[in-house]
Design a protein around this nucleic acid. Structure first.
Length: 933
RNA sequence: GGGCCUAUAGCUCAGCUUAGGUCAGAGCGCACGCCUGAUAAGCGUGAGGUCGGAGGUUCGAAUCCUCCUAGGCCCA
């Protein structure tokens, strides 16, 4: 007879091989058809809300591993919070406006800026954004990310655009917005401002001149007093520049507060340079080391003045960190209208942002000396003027990297233009924002330091862009007196129109059409107005998402519980959102900020095309399935940089297989188990089963705590560890005999199945937020009733808590310790002596330590627990096979058993061969009798 | 160049902060062996780390301090 037919072997349709690539789309379709996301929310109607607000990715290009990681983390949170009993909606969004799209569109249409009417560009941009939104939406959905994909928020939706404009007006109304000049990259050839992304650095030959600025008499007198010397010769500071044409705009001279400066005597004059540059300068200029008259700190000169080299005005000495010793003299000529750093230091010292250069790169006609000239012509004139005045210390030419326009490839300049700003100080926005942060929880905790220090030092927020793809800065200006209309009543009509038709109308309608009837300037009564041409910085678009989404969607609330983005957003979205919210609402838009690191390769280096180490999520999905990508996201500690490599992927695949297989075994052995009828209460379970449920509870608690704290790598670790350690190699290995060989409805088998049932229930639910596809697949293969829960995501995380007494725990601690020692002995018998293969062939003899004697008394238990033929205590062991290190005094010997093997259960028992059926052991004989009844 | 952060076995992580003191742990992988009724599975045993480096504080440091190196993010 083939006894195999009398065994309860596992039965399940759940395949061992996952085939994720092929099967995942089936579950995506299942979730979509059954509207599981919607049902998740419906089921938790009235439950406490958990609002995770999605930071909008930019609608440009395909998703990469970073965006995939971000969305998967969000998805894990949404699913886990839902299963913890929260109502956790997820409204994904996209950032649609802005320069990168506008530039790509210009490139696709092969046009330069301004060649097409704004509306035509805007329409093309809208199409472009829509295209990538659709691409990214499918890519996100493919990852198994749940959310309201049919109604995402788009910053280019008319309603959202109206919100952006409305929020801008709140700043305007409250006097937090002002206009001021600020230098920007400027192409005089194309007659346009350029963004950083439109600038290319190319070698370029420029003049290289050293210019002497005479000190004012007052400064000379001051220095004579301070340094106690007589300046009886002409005294100058020396600067170096490659842009002589910026000298007409010179307003200051910057020294580094950290350096020491020298007064030297050279060629019959006194000169001031930085000490750290002197020797290099001498080499460069081919002169001998000059006589040093004095050394002094630059703070001495701060606030003092020099004379402009060719104008009748003065130039202020200022201090600035950015002055270096790499080139020049350690003294930098400052033209606040023509350089970023110059501008900032100019602001600090209250200098004018002075720009005598027009849009086409010519000096304004009223500029002395160079009026009406081009920059290169002005360079020549300035050089000869300096030379005539004897102030050109040295002159040459230099080839260096210089910014060029990416369109026309011509050199560009820095030139100040009027820009709109949100003031950090006008209404104490900086202070309010810093205070507001104190109520925000940061994960990791150092996030607050980072955003704080950025906030403390950031300049006013420049919110204007000279572009077309964006939300217009809705400002009307009185043509007669220049007054800016700030009252919201002038803009109500505009906002209403925006809501209905989008912001195109700002470009098409006249101010008269946009303003309310009979609008009058409150200052002069004028009735003719102009409208602003600039658009808003896209950071403002996304910065007001709390107003466009949290406050407007009925399923959400303001403020959000959580914002979750990469750590680069401390400067970006977290900050723009904070400023927008604090500036208009007085509170931050979030209660918690969670940041993750960046995806790097196995060696910790960033992914780049040049390094050739870029991994695309699309390839991973194709090769492994989205599930492995999800597992990767969960297994890594996202607070640091997140590594990915072939080895990491290989390990993850192994981890996945182990979890999957363990669940498959559980499914297969529960085929005839109905928890309603067969579940055995914890109190009545045998000790080992009780111990296992205790372990399961411990794991479950760890997992729930980890979800609570957003520590998903601990979840994955614990699930995997529990599967391999407690379940697979301990419980299943030992109790498999009960499952297969005992009578189907026997206590031992049902007790074992009770443990398997709890284990599977816990595994399938706790893995669901991470291994969503597999959890759903398991759920659909459950052999017992799922009640009315058609998807695992409609279930809650389990909440059982099986606890053992101290005595029981200590019993199991010692029992498992002893087991390890016996297993070591068995391994020696197997590997070195080769007297056994399976432990079932072994007879085990031990000489105990008194301390453990009582634990070992139940020989039948140990035979079962160690899966050996015989377990016996002996008075002493002369020549033991194994002497324990861990348990001093414990000696063990092993013999191959002479017992015959039961053909049904394969155990070696003394009675085999003596019973009415000689092939069977006593247990199996009884079982066979029972099942044949 | 500045600010913030990270660095524990081949891999992923514990341990480090509001306690500095058991031979530094786990899982996986690896090696070797077993099983063949979870089988492109399962089980066992074992080998792997001077806790990035160098100083310092301390009776004692992976844990505290300083510097350095490598890497990341954001600025310049």
């Amino acid at each position: 007879m083939d006894w195999k037919d009398t065994l309860n072997l596992p039965k399940t349709d759940f395949p061992m091989k996952a085939n994720l690539t092929e099967r995942e789309p089936l579950f995506l379709a299942f979730w979509e058809e059954r509207a599981i996301y919607k049902k998740m929310l419906e089921k938790r109607k009235g439950a406490p809300l958990f609002v995770l607000h999605d930071g909008p990715p930019y609608a440009n290009g395909h998703i990469h591993l970073g965006t995939a990681l971000n969305k998967i983390l969000k998805d894990i949170i949404i699913k886990s919070r839902t299963m913890m009993g929260f109502q956790a909606p997820f409204i994904p969004g996209w950032d649609c406006h802005g320069l990168p799209i506008e530039l790509n569109v210009e490139r696709e249409l092969n046009v330069k800026r301004g060649e097409l009417p704004p509306l035509q560009i805007r329409e093309a941009c809208r199409k472009y954004a829509e295209r990538f939104i659709n691409i990214q939406r499918e890519e996100f959905k493919r990852l198994g990310v749940f959310g309201d994909w049919s109604k995402p928020y788009l910053t280019m939706d008319p309603e959202y655009e109206a919100v952006i404009a409305r929020e801008f007006l709140r700043f305007l109304e409250t006097d937090q917005v002002y206009r001021r000049k600020k230098p920007v990259f400027w192409c005089p050839t194309c007659v346009t401002a350029l963004a950083e992304a439109e600038v290319e650095y190319e070698p370029h030959e420029s003049p290289s001149i050293y210019v002497k600025f005479p000190l004012t008499t007052e400064t000379i007198n001051f220095l004579e007093r301070e340094l106690k010397l007589v300046l009886d010769k002409p005294t100058f500071v020396v600067i170096w520049t490659t842009t002589p044409w910026t000298l007409p705009a010179n307003l200051a001279l910057a020294l580094n507060p950290e350096f020491t400066y020298l007064l030297i005597e050279l060629e019959g004059e006194y000169l001031i340079v930085a000490e750290g540059r002197l020797s290099a300068l001498c080499v460069e200029l081919g002169i001998d080391l000059p006589k040093i008259l004095a050394r002094f700190s630059p703070t001495l000169l701060e606030g003092k003045k020099a004379k402009h080299p060719f104008y009748e005005r003065e130039s202020l000495f200022v201090l600035a960190d950015f002055v270096t010793l790499d080139t020049g003299t350690g003294i930098v000529h400052i033209a606040p209208g023509h350089g970023e750093e110059d501008y900032l230091v100019g602001l600090k010292y209250g200098l004018e942002i002075y720009t005598p250069v027009d849009e086409e790169g010519k000096f304004y006609p009223d500029t002395p000396l160079v009026g009406g000239l081009t920059l290169s012509k002005a360079n020549e004139i300035i050089l000869s003027e300096l030379s005539n005045r004897g102030l050109l210390f040295r002159s040459g030419r230099i080839t260096h990297n210089y910014p060029h326009c990416w369109r026309c490839k011509k050199p560009i300049i820095f030139r100040a233009e009027y820009q709109w700003f949100i003031s950090m100080e006008a209404k104490a926005l900086r202070t309010k924002a810093l205070n507001a942060l104190k109520n925000v929880k940061f994960i990791p905790s150092w996030g607050i330091n980072r955003i704080q220090s950025m906030l403390e030092s950031r300049p006013d927020w420049c919110i204007s862009r000279q572009r077309v793809w964006g939300v217009p800065i809705t400002v009307f200006k009185c043509e007669s007196c220049g007054e800016i209309l700030k009252d919201y009543k002038f803009y109500e009509k505009v906002i209403e129109l925006f809501k209905k038709e989008g912001t195109d109308i700002w470009f098409t309608l006249t101010p008269e059409e946009l303003l309310p009837e009979n609008a009058k300037c409150p200052k002069c009564g004028g009735t003719v107005f102009s409208k602003e041409k600039d658009i808003l910085d896209v950071w403002f678009d996304s910065g007001v998402s709390f107003a466009g989404v949290l406050e407007r969607r009925e399923e959400l609330t303001f403020p959000a519980d959580l914002y979750l983005e990469g750590s680069d957003q401390h400067r970006g979205w977290f900050q723009s959102s904070l400023l927008c919210s604090v500036g208009t609402r007085g509170v931050p838009p979030y209660k918690m900020i969670l940041t993750h690191g960046f995806v790097v390769d196995g060696k910790g280096r960033k992914m780049s095309k040049s390094l050739g180490n870029v991994i695309h999520p699309q390839d991973l999905i194709k090769k492994y399935g989205a599930e492995i990508v999800r597992l990767w996201v969960s297994a890594e500690d996202y607070r640091d940089d997140i590594k990915i490599s072939q080895e990491i992927l290989d390990r993850l695949v192994e981890t996945y297989r182990k979890i999957r297989n363990t669940c498959r075994f559980l499914l297969g052995n529960l085929y005839d188990f109905d928890p309603e009828r067969h579940l055995i209460p914890f109190e009545k379970l045998p000790p080992f089963e009780r111990y296992l449920l205790h372990c399961l509870s411990q794991s479950l608690n760890k997992i729930k705590r980890a979800y609570e704290n957003f520590e998903f790598h601990l979840v994955t670790y614990e699930i995997h560890r529990f599967c391999s350690v407690e379940l697979s190699s301990l419980f299943i290995d030992i109790n498999r005999d009960y499952l297969y060989c005992e009578a189907p409805d026997s206590f031992k088998r049902r007790a074992t199945q009770t443990v398997l049932y709890y284990a599977l229930d816990t595994l399938v639910k706790t893995m669901a937020p991470i291994l969503s596809f597999t959890a759903e697949e398991i759920w659909q293969n459950l052999p017992y009733s799922k009640g009315d829960l058609e998807s695992v995501f409609l279930a809650d995380l389990p909440d059982y808590d099986f606890q053992l007494s101290e005595e029981e725990l200590s019993f199991w601690k010692n029992t498992l310790l002893l087991r390890e020692e016996f297993l070591r002995a068995l391994e020696i018998a197997r590997k070195d002596l080769k007297i056994i293969g399976s432990s079932l062939e072994a007879e085990l003899y031990y000489f105990p330590v008194e301390e453990y004697r009582s634990l070992l008394r139940d020989h039948a238990f140990w035979e079962y627990f160690l899966m050996v033929a015989k377990f016996e205590e002996v008075p002493d062991l002369e020549d033991p096979l194994f002497v324990s290190d861990e348990i001093k005094g414990l000696k063990i010997s092993i013999r191959k058993t002479q017992y015959k093997k039961c053909e049904r259960c394969w155990q070696r028992r003394p009675e085999v061969g003596t019973l009415e059926n000689p092939e069977l052991c006593y247990r199996c004989l009884e079982v066979v009798k029972e099942i044949s009844k």
